[in-house]
Simulated scan of single mutants.
Amino acid sequence: MLRGYYTAASGMTTQQRRQDTLSNNIANAQTPGFKQDQASIRSFPELLIKRIDSETLPTVRNFTLPIDQSIGSINSGVYVQETIVDHQQGGLLETGMPADMALINGIIPDETGSIFFTVQNANGELRYTRNGNFTVDGEGFLTTNQGYYVLNQAGEPIFTDGQDFTVTSEGQVEVAGAQIPLNIAYAADVNQLIKDDEDLFVPGEEVDEPADARNVAGLSFSVEQHFLEHSNVDQVQTMTEMMQAYRLFETNQKVLQAYDQSMDIAVNQIGRLT
């Protein structure tokens, strides 16, 4: 019976964490370039139950025969192993704003590959994003909404001195007669990227920085100015999964209550009679 407590409790904890993940997806459904998270749920290793006994045969020497009989397996609960980012490209939204840009995947040579804008955070570290909702700061540099510099191919901030510029489909920022190539990065395995608290991506430990997309053989992409990439959150599907998670949490809760009532009877009533 005590094992049932842990099994039901693990189910409740799992659905609560799944609900947190789905809630974060819904909260960012209108965030440009947001990539939804998916909770990966696994069961704990099953336990094999055996009957170990012995039987004495009625012989002259009372021969004892050992018994090792498999009864079956028992599940010990579930847990959220990890959250996996879905990097599927979202739809496009036309905004008409010159600083808004959307990356469009062309030919991607690796099944798990994707392209990103390269930005520099407040600590001078490289980060990667699909959110092209950019702006121009007071000093004339192209930045993200967090104030992080958008970098060119040389790894330097892009100076536009206002919003009077154009961006070609090849990712060239044309300003004052000059062409500045955007730093478009390519990650061959997006599963090696980690999402930070600001929905920017960073390579995991012992993983190389994404490569320059223009130097990757067989890769093609385009950049659309005046457009933004939608998040890839399916709000209807996410709401359905949230209701399912709530029902599963409620079911495990009722199982836990049933175990508690049985334990109460065993301790306070049956135990009193004995």
Rank of each mutant, 00 (worst) to 15 (best):
M1V: 02
G4Y: 01
Y5T: 12
G11I: 08
M12G: 08
T13M: 15
T13S: 09
T14R: 04
Q16N: 11
Q19Y: 01
D20R: 04
T21A: 14
L22F: 07
S23K: 10
S23A: 15
N24W: 04
N25M: 12
I26S: 05
I26Q: 08
A27V: 09
N28K: 00
A29Q: 15
T31I: 13
P32I: 12
P32E: 10
F34G: 08
K35R: 13
K35L: 04
D37P: 07
Q38E: 10
S40P: 09
F44L: 13
P45R: 01
P45Y: 01
R51Q: 11
T56H: 05
P66A: 10
I67Q: 13
Q69M: 14
S70I: 07
G72W: 01
S73Q: 13
S73N: 13
N75V: 07
N75D: 08
V78E: 07
V78N: 08
Y79A: 08
Q81M: 09
Q81S: 11
Q81P: 00
E82G: 03
T83V: 12
H87Y: 13
Q88T: 15
G91A: 13
E94H: 03
E94V: 09
E94Q: 13
T95Y: 03
D100C: 11
L103H: 14
I104D: 10
N105D: 15
G106P: 04
G106L: 06
D110N: 14
T112S: 14
F116R: 03
F117S: 11
V119E: 12
N121F: 01
N123S: 14
N123W: 00
G124E: 05
Y128G: 11
F134N: 04
E139L: 12
G140F: 00
L142K: 04
T143Q: 15
T144K: 03
V150G: 05
A154V: 11
A154L: 11
G155V: 09
P157C: 06
F159L: 11
F159C: 03
Q163E: 15
D164I: 10
D164Y: 01
T166Y: 05
T166P: 00
T168K: 08
T168V: 12
S169Q: 15
E170K: 12
E170F: 03
V173A: 09
V173K: 11
E174G: 06
P181W: 02
L182H: 01
I184F: 00
A187L: 04
D189Y: 01
V190S: 09
V190H: 03
L193V: 10
K195M: 07
E198R: 12
V202C: 03
V202P: 11
P203T: 09
G204S: 10
G204Y: 03
E209N: 11
P210V: 14
A211W: 02
A211V: 04
D212K: 05
D212N: 15
A213S: 11
A213C: 06
R214A: 13
N215T: 14
N215G: 08
V216W: 01
S220G: 10
V223C: 00
L228E: 04
L228N: 00
E229K: 02
E229P: 01
S231L: 08
Q237V: 14
M239P: 02
M243V: 15
Q244K: 10
R247E: 06
E250L: 12
Q253C: 08
V255P: 01
L256S: 05
Q257R: 07
Q257S: 13
A258T: 12
D260G: 06
D260V: 12
D264F: 01
V267F: 00
V267L: 08
I270G: 09
I270D: 03
I270S: 04
I270R: 00
T274C: 04
